[in-house]
């Protein structure tokens, strides 16, 4: 089970801001500062797209913007979910290509 490491909050700032967005039509709760990939992963979603060639599920591989395996579509644009920060109300759909 994936999730969040407890007790990392900065006491001087109070609890972190929660953000909501949707992925494939489902509501996802994230923390401000999350990447799309990490918000999904913490919520248990590891597959973010299917390969357009053989249809197999794919997700994060490198988590640092190198591999382009975690592509998703945000507002019609294909982006790397591991380097794209979440925004409130963002509509995220599974990516297609590479």
């Amino acid at each position: 089970m994936s999730g969040r490491i407890a007790g990392l909050d900065d006491a001087t700032r109070g609890p972190r801001e929660l953000i909501e967005f949707t992925f494939a039509g489902e509501k996802v709760t994230a923390w401000a500062g999350d990447s799309i990939a990490m918000a999904l992963w913490a919520g248990g979603t590891t597959a973010v797209r299917s390969s357009s060639k053989n249809g197999s599920p794919r997700g994060v591989l490198c988590n640092m913007g190198i591999c382009y395996e975690c592509l998703v579509v945000v507002d019609g644009r294909t982006v790397r979910s591991c380097t794209t920060p979440v925004r409130a109300g963002m509509v995220v759909e599974p990516g297609g290509r590479p």
Binding site: G3, R4, I5, L8, D34, W41, V60, L61, N63, M64
Partner: peptide
């Protein structure tokens, strides 16, 4: 990727 998850995002 695992180090980024833990040390970069506080994700389990």
């Amino acid at each position: 990727a695992l180090q980024v998850m833990v040390r970069g995002f506080g994700v389990v």
